[in-house]
């Protein structure tokens, strides 16, 4: 009896320190990565890690499938690029105004779409985002098909030159880490627990006196804000805001990243984002039809691996641990 209890405490202690070790390893890897891999490529991955995690905040933790998140991502990219290039905003202000834009847009979209549930919600967010896409094509300042190019990166706090990609990388890393921290805190806060309760059983949550739509709206707005942060960072670090980032394909791709990594898990979407970005990177030179491959992966994932990479691995690990 006593032997057994020692092993369990030993195991859980090992579990905690294992998780700690994993976290430290991740940070170390992120810090060291630009010395081994092209920083621009890493920044792209980071932006999509944040984007997918933000989408997962509503999809995985609130059960809301949005097919319009490209509007926040791409819309914020335009705002950041335009304000930095045309209005000469410094880096911080460009990012801030982009996030403010996507927050506001998220609130409006959320307000309109959260009245309808499930499938309707997905269709409405998609249609609303398509409106932003058409505006992006037609408005004079977005540069139509070309987008806004030659966006200056500027200086951080007017001092640190972001023209150097290595510096830029660390700034992006810090901001993405901040965004992920916000998501992590949100999920583990009382607010996050309410969200989970609503996802589990909305009728019961309502009968407990909660107002599900208010919670969903807050989560949706937060998700839009963080997607905007990801989009703005991408625009500044790549010095371009493109039409591609507001298309419905982008909204779909980010859902795919979340699905492929593991919906409703904290690190799954990050894994999915890294996987998809890396895959596209290598496919882009192969001459293979990327959209086709993405679509097929989508279908295979839905048919066979609904838990995603992380979810399936964890299930496999738990099964194995259970057998031992």
């Amino acid at each position: 009896m006593s032997v057994q209890s020692t092993t369990t405490t030993g195991l859980s202690r090992a579990g905690v320190s294992k998780r700690m070790l994993f976290f430290i390893g991740l940070v170390a890897a992120a810090l060291a990565a630009p010395f081994f891999v092209y920083p621009l490529f890493l920044m792209k991955i980071l932006c999509f890690v944040l984007f997918a995690s933000a989408v997962n905040l509503v999809l995985g933790f609130a059960g809301l499938l949005s097919l319009g998140h490209a509007a926040f991502f791409g819309g914020a990219a335009y705002v950041a690029a335009h304000s930095a290039k045309v209005w000469g905003f410094p880096f911080e202000l460009a990012i801030l105004s982009a996030v403010a834009f996507s927050t506001l847009l998220g609130f409006v979209f959320g307000f309109l779409s959260i009245r309808r549930q499930g499938i309707y919600f997905a269709m409405i967010t998609l249609a609303l985002a398509q409106m932003i896409y058409f505006l992006a094509i037609q408005m004079p300042f977005t540069g139509g098909e070309d987008g806004i190019t030659a966006v200056p990166r500027g200086r951080l706090f007017g001092v640190v030159d972001l023209g150097d990609s290595l510096t830029m990388y660390y700034v992006v890393l810090a901001l993405v880490a901040f965004g992920l921290f916000v998501i992590w805190r949100t999920v583990h806060s009382p607010f996050g627990h309410v969200l989970a309760a609503i996802k589990e059983n909305e009728a019961r949550a309502t009968s407990l006196g909660l107002q599900p739509n208010r919670y969903k709206l807050i989560a949706f707005t937060l998700s839009a804000a963080l997607s905007g942060l990801a989009g703005a960072l991408k625009a500044i670090s790549f010095q371009v805001a493109s039409l591609l980032d507001v298309t419905w394909h982008m909204s779909g791709e980010v859902v795919l990243m979340t699905l492929i990594g593991g919906m409703g898990t904290l690190i799954g979407p990050g894994i999915g984002a890294a996987f998809v970005v890396a895959m596209e990177h290598y496919l882009s030179t192969s001459g293979l039809p990327i959209t086709f491959i993405i679509g097929v992966i989508f279908m295979v994932c839905v048919m066979l691996f609904r838990k995603g990479i992380y979810g399936e691995l964890r299930a496999w690990y738990l099964r194995r641990a259970g057998r031992d």
Binding site: H249, L256, F298, V302
Partner: peptide
């Protein structure tokens, strides 16, 4: 099923 048909559309 929505995501599946979405993937089919992309493909």
């Amino acid at each position: 099923s929505l995501l599946f048909t979405f993937g089919a559309a992309l493909a």
